[in-house]
Design a protein around this nucleic acid. Structure first.
Lengths: 153, 153
DNA sequence: TGCAGAATGACAACATGTTGTCAATATGAA
DNA sequence: TTCATATTGACAACATGTTGTCATTCTGCA
């Protein structure tokens, strides 16, 4: 079946599959959390990045682990909806800064409030130590997968 | 900042974010593993489902947690490339069965071999118990997130 | 046996994100 | 200061997946 996978390989593969499945459900939950505010996970992420600090589209792309073109498309939609605006950047003529408008702040706060209720309820289901250890394992895997180049293409 | 999130909520949110980030990297790694065979993660998943047992597009959608339309698009591409074929289904005139062709089997085996090397190497980096416990936590979260409806829309 | 309702594939519109390319703008080293 | 190089936004093509709709085919029950 899997001719050359070791027990350790099997264990990692099972872990990876469960992580991918959970991520799908988390994505769905994120969309549901953002929906009453008329937003989506993607828009929420960009709003949150711009709220954290005014930044260019390229900055947000790096912060979110996405290409700047992908962020650009969402940011243009957010601007059209009046949730962000592109402010002049004294340090760079081309790279305008995304800034939340009042409407953007209200929208983001509404999503954050719903997310808090959701996360609090789910957090109660776990032992604190269990959740912390799992998070550490996930982060370790994150770094390992980043580092591990796939067997030579 | 997050006015009403409890420590447990913070812990779950941190866990969720790390899972989403790892899933992104795993997706990228999956694409890299499939690429030398001229495939992608999506095509690999459909090939693997059809290899497990001949099944209809709708069946594969359920197995993969995707809509049947999404699977259909990929399956049509796989058929066009000669990796699967739609076999008559004695039990259902409309719902043909996806079956791997010889070329499909060769392609899938090539991907599986590369995935084994990759998973084995990553699995070695972890304590077996650590990986097993993290997988259990992820699966528990999976079930909880499925069950937990988002605060009333 | 019929027939209402479910399941399925086909098709279209759309959301999300990537890759590739181009021109405009910054940046840093000679 | 100048010029090669990197960064950035704009634009297009494409991959992936969802939602919605329709007609066809199955299924189960009265």
């Amino acid at each position: 079946m899997n001719p050359d996978r070791t027990p350790a390989g099997d264990a990692f593969a099972a872990f990876a599959i469960s992580v991918l499945r959970l991520a799908g459900h988390l994505q769905t939950a994120g969309d549901a959390l953002a929906k009453p505010a008329g937003q989506t996970s993607a828009r929420w992420q960009v709003l949150a990045a711009a709220d954290h600090a005014p930044m260019s589209v390229a900055d947000a792309g790096r912060a979110l682990g996405m290409t700047r073109q992908g962020v650009q498309r969402v940011a243009d939609l957010l601007e059209k909806d009046g949730l962000i605006l592109y402010a002049e950047n004294p340090a760079h003529q081309r790279a305008k800064l995304m800034v939340l408008t009042e409407a953007g702040k209200v929208t983001l706060d509404a999503i954050k409030a719903r997310q808090a209720v959701w996360a609090n309820a789910l957090g109660e289901l776990f032992d604190k130590k269990q959740l912390r250890e799992a998070t550490e394992t996930v982060i370790t895997a994150l770094q390992a997968v980043e580092k591990q180049s796939v067997p030579d293409d």
